[in-house]
Write a protein that binds this DNA or RNA. Structure first.
Lengths: 192, 192
DNA sequence: CGTCTATTTGAATGTACTCAAAAGCGGTGG
DNA sequence: CCACCGCTTTTGAGTACATTCAAATAGACG
């Protein structure tokens, strides 16, 4: 059923009693989105934390002068939200959009807080999630600082081969922090 | 005494009983380091999580071909380690060095784990710490991707005015991902 | 089939880098 | 306390990486 993925995800890090599990599931809302649907609009209050049950989402920032920047992709079995704005319940700095038709399970801030107080194991679960997210972002900063675009592109393909299949080059370019034209040029040199 | 800063830091997010507090403090090791002392050497196992009681530390990566990259600065009241390698108890990818004479309180992985199991409030505390760290890194990625070096430098000075006083421009440049020469050029244009 | 967007290609430009050398500054030893 | 040494910062010339703009081609989707 719809909950098997998220339960498997939980069980990677914590174990729960039957009751706790049921309580957790009762807080989740299920949502289906089509390709290109925007789950969260930049500027609106970020109300939910999303678990990607199936499909693929993308979080991106669009500035006035600045080019669009892809903050993250979230594939099946990943969690995603605008974390800062979710925690503050403030206006989202990024938009989150479905790259392809996806099914989501979402949890509100209020429900997450009540989860923390009634089932302490979730403090542990999200600690581990946040830890991993922190480490991932730190590695990404390091790569952005120290590696040329070509190497970053190669690493991206190695690390996320599934994502490469599903998203456009334009989106990959905006994740790597380069223009689509330049990514195209990089690919051209590799073909020789 | 030496523990007042770290207790204040804890109390920002959790409250503890007398006993819990004493247990926590009993796990900490105190360390004094002089300017330029290396607290953690790249390549050696990262055994501790450090709380900066006073002073300023810097984490940086040195590659063979790549220029040195500063991962983070940690000033008074901050926590720092090579998080990935600390969690895995594996070889550190970065070095951590004292920018100036500093006093540290350190916690081993083993002791942190026992802290988690005996005092669950610490799951919450470090969840919040990791959350904040994640959000900080994500903002940094976004700025690196979307803003030119000059703006990143201005933002850095606004965000961390104290750090700017204490570190060299070379170190700031390596945090921003530019060469010292180019940072110097940026500063020159601002003086006109 | 036609429209819309993504991708490629190319030329001109700009941003940031390398290398080299001079100037500034801080610390250390005589 | 001053002189020297080493490192940081500045300056400048030449270069490389990446961008902008424009136009052609290719793909996706209704």
């Amino acid at each position: 059923m719809v909950y098997s993925n998220i339960l498997k995800n939980l069980h990677k890090h914590i174990s729960l009693t039957q009751e706790e599990e049921e309580y957790f599931l009762s807080l989740l809302k299920y949502q289906e989105v089509s390709k290109k649907d925007v789950v969260l609009h930049q500027g609106e209050v970020c109300k939910h934390l999303y678990f990607v049950n199936s499909g693929l989402l993308r979080a991106f920032f669009t500035g006035q002068e600045t080019k669009e920047a892809t903050i993250m992709f979230a594939m099946e079995d990943w969690w995603i939200t605008d974390m800062h704005c979710f925690l503050q319940q403030s206006a989202a700095m990024v938009s989150i959009q479905a790259v392809e038709a996806s099914t989501l399970l979402k949890l509100s801030k209020h429900d997450l807080d009540s989860l923390y107080s009634t089932v302490p194991a979730f403090e542990r679960f999200f600690r581990i999630l946040m830890q991993n997210a922190y480490v991932r972002e730190q590695v990404r900063v390091l790569e952005n600082l120290s590696l040329p675009a070509e190497v970053r592109y190669t690493n991206f393909m190695k690390k996320y081969p599934q994502i490469v299949q599903q998203v456009t080059q334009k989106q990959i370019a905006s994740y790597l922090g380069i223009t689509p034209e330049f990514l195209s040029a990089i690919r051209a040199t590799k073909r020789l």
